[in-house]
């Protein structure tokens, strides 16, 4: 069977999916990146290989997305390397064809995508501040000693949510601590935090956007039932959380790879051997001009596969230093 691989390497998670020719998900994996994108991709590739072993699945194309898309694209031999906004939009409109709004909250970023008639007409992404993203929730769950999986459920037990200041995660944390010290029960505080995060999201990322149904909520934070409920309350709309909400970026990347390979008729996929190779990443500061660009080298067996980070392009040609 012909199949396509999608790889989404984000700040917190590394997700891989395999889809068939009709876009059905055959394999989906959700791993933690843990600051080691190369290892995470290799581990993911190993697990994908295991999962499809003996099933007569042939990988005919591969696409990457996420903040490490360029790096992971080099490692797997990607046919497409796409930004995560486009990838998420493609996946959402594949699974919910008439979708008009996509809310996506990941580990370090949050975005809103507005679609009309199947095409993206507007989007926004948090800029200089990460208040109200997955890592903040992770951090608060750890601080309260509650597993992140149970965090949202506790919010639903609340009958009177406490108001938390949500504009900045550092100030939100101070506010939460103050409310705890006053004796407010934990579920009320968590519910308040969910409300604050949603309020901040809608007022910051969602500012001025026309949010129309169907609304799809995806990204790791969509697992949190407390946040889902807070969105439904704030928007007065039903929120659709797709089955594969955690790996939507990877699904989008796989769909884009499928389209590209159909057009060009071949794939650059390097095969599953990539999980056994030794990749070395090294960096140096170029002293050629006052920009002092930080150049990154990715190599296998001392052979440089890719290099980036320079502004002027003089390091882009690999042959210069072999």
């Amino acid at each position: 069977m012909q199949a396509y691989l999608g790889v989404d390497v984000g700040s917190v998670s590394t997700n891989l999916v395999v889809i068939d020719d009709d876009g059905n998900v055959l394999v989906d994996l959700y791993l933690r990146t843990q600051g080691q994108p190369i290892q995470a991709v290799q581990e993911g590739m190993k697990q994908v290989e295991e999962a499809i072993k003996g099933k007569k699945i042939e990988i005919c194309g591969v696409g990457t997305t996420g903040s490490a898309r360029t790096l992971s694209g080099v490692i797997v031999g990607a046919d497409t390397v796409k930004n995560e906004i486009t990838a998420h939009a493609v996946a959402a409109s594949h699974l919910v064809p008439d979708v008009q709004t996509v809310l996506e909250i990941g580990g370090q970023d949050s975005k809103i995508i507005i679609l009309r008639d199947g095409i993206v007409v507007d989007f926004a992404m948090n800029t200089v501040c990460a208040a109200g993203t997955g890592s903040f929730l992770d951090h608060q769950a750890a601080r309260l000693n509650i597993p992140i999986e149970d965090f949202g459920g506790l919010a639903l037990q609340s009958e009177a949510s406490v108001r938390i200041a949500g504009r900045c995660s550092v100030f939100a944390e101070s506010d939460m601590i103050h409310k705890q010290q006053m004796g407010h029960p934990t579920p009320d505080i968590i519910a308040g935090l969910c409300d604050a995060l949603v309020r901040n999201y809608l007022n910051n990322v969602g500012k001025g956007k026309e949010i129309l149904a169907p609304v799809v909520f995806q990204g790791g934070v969509a697992a949190n039932v407390g946040i889902r409920a807070a969105f439904e309350k704030a928007l007065g709309l039903k929120i659709i959380v797709p089955d594969y909400f955690k790996v939507m970026g990877a699904i989008g990347a796989a769909l884009l790879a499928k389209a590209t390979v159909k057009e060009k008729g071949e794939t650059n996929f390097r095969g599953f051997v990539v999980s056994d190779l030794e990749y070395q990443a090294s960096s140096f500061e170029c002293q050629g001009c006052p920009n002092l660009c930080e150049i990154v080298n990715i190599s296998v067996d001392d052979k440089v596969l890719a290099r980036w980070g320079g502004r002027c392009g003089k390091w882009d040609t690999l042959s210069k230093t072999g």
Binding site: K82, N83, E84, I85, T86, V120, F123, M125
Partner: peptide
Amino acid sequence: TRIEAFLD
């Protein structure tokens, strides 16, 4: 990321 998405 934002530029590429905007161009798309």
